[in-house]
Amino acid sequence: MRVSLDQDKCVASGQCVMAAPEVFDQRDEDGVAVLLAVEPAEGDADDVRHASAVCPVLAIHVEE
């Protein structure tokens, strides 16, 4: 699995951090999402799919 994140679209709702805390974090200055792992571990794959599904601005793209 490969993940990409469009920070320009991000509205800092924190959904991805709640869904997949191992793979996403937020910038201190404005809460914009940060990708911690472009190729997440197998065990985090479901959480990442959920993060992508709940992102309110479709800023998370997952390639299986």
Binding site: V11, A12, G14, V17, M18, P21, Q26, R27, D28, E29, D30, G31, V32
Partner: peptide, 9 residues
């Protein structure tokens, strides 16, 4: 974005 930081998870 000016007010999102304190609401970060």
């Amino acid at each position: 974005r000016m007010v999102t930081a304190p609401f970060a998870v």
